[in-house]
Computed example of a mutant assay.
Amino acid sequence: MKGKKATVLTFADKCKNILASNWQGHLNTIKADAKGSKEDIYTSKVKYILRRGKPYIWVPEKDLHNVNTIIDERGSFAVSSPIPGPLPSLLGSMKKLPARVALTGDVEPLKDGKAQSATESLREVLLSEQKVISQCSYTVSGVLSSSNLSYASRSESLKKLLEGDEKYVVYKFNFRSSMFIDGNGGAYEVDFEDIKASKADPLAPFSAMLIDGINQNGARRRALILFCFIYLNAHARVRH
Results as ranks from 00 to 15, higher is better:
Glu61Ala: 12
Asp33Gln: 06
Gly25Met: 07
Phe11Gln: 13
Arg100Ala: 12
Val101Gln: 03
Glu39Asp: 11
Trp58Glu: 01
Asp112Ser: 15
Lys45Asn: 11
Gly75Trp: 02
Val67Tyr: 05
Glu120Cys: 00
Arg123Asp: 12
Lys114Trp: 08
Ala102Gly: 09
Lys16Gln: 11
Asp63Glu: 12
Gly36Thr: 02
Tyr48Thr: 14
Thr69Arg: 07
Ala32Trp: 13
Ser80Gly: 13
Ser93Phe: 03
Gly113Tyr: 03
Val107Ile: 13
Pro88Lys: 00
Ile18Glu: 03
Tyr56Leu: 12
Thr119Val: 09
Lys35Phe: 13
Leu64Cys: 06
Glu108Pro: 00
Gly53Glu: 09
Asn66Gly: 11
Pro86Ile: 02
Glu73Trp: 02
Pro55Asn: 04
Asp13Ser: 09
Ala20Ile: 01
Lys16Tyr: 00
Thr43Trp: 07
Ile49Met: 10
Ala34Pro: 03
Gly75His: 04
Gly85Leu: 07
Pro86Thr: 02
Lys111Leu: 10
Gln116Trp: 02
Leu90Asn: 04
Ala34Ser: 15
Leu87Thr: 12
Lys38Phe: 12
Ala12Thr: 04
Ile57Met: 11
Ser89Thr: 05
Lys16His: 13
Lys14Cys: 11
Asp63Arg: 05
Trp58Gly: 10
Lys14Asn: 05
Glu108Ala: 03
Thr29Gln: 10
Lys14Pro: 04
Leu103Ile: 02
Thr10Val: 07
Arg51Cys: 05
Leu90Phe: 15
Ile57Gly: 12
Glu108Asp: 08
Lys16Arg: 15
Ala6Trp: 02
Tyr56Asp: 06
Lys62Ser: 09
Ile18Phe: 02
Ala115Arg: 15
Tyr56Thr: 11
Ser80Glu: 11
Ala99Lys: 10
Ile71His: 06
Ser37Lys: 15
Ile57Tyr: 04
Glu120Met: 05
His26Cys: 10
Cys15Glu: 00
Lys47Leu: 14
Ala78Tyr: 09
Val79Lys: 00
Lys5His: 11
Ile70Tyr: 03
Val79Phe: 00
Val101His: 01
Lys45Val: 15
Asp13Trp: 09
Val67Cys: 00
Leu97His: 12
Ala102Asn: 10
Tyr56Ala: 07
Cys15Lys: 00
Val46Cys: 05
Leu27Gln: 07
Asp106Asn: 05
Pro82Lys: 08
Ser121Tyr: 01
Phe77Gly: 01
Asn28Gln: 14
Lys14Tyr: 05
Phe77Ala: 04
Thr29Glu: 06
Thr119Asp: 03
Asn17Gln: 10
Ala32His: 09
Thr7Glu: 15
Asn66Val: 08
Thr43Gly: 12
Ile71Gln: 00
Val8Lys: 07
Asp112Gly: 03
Lys16Met: 08
Ala78Asn: 09
Gly75Tyr: 05
Thr7Gln: 14
Ser93Gln: 09
Ser117Gln: 10
Asp33Gly: 06
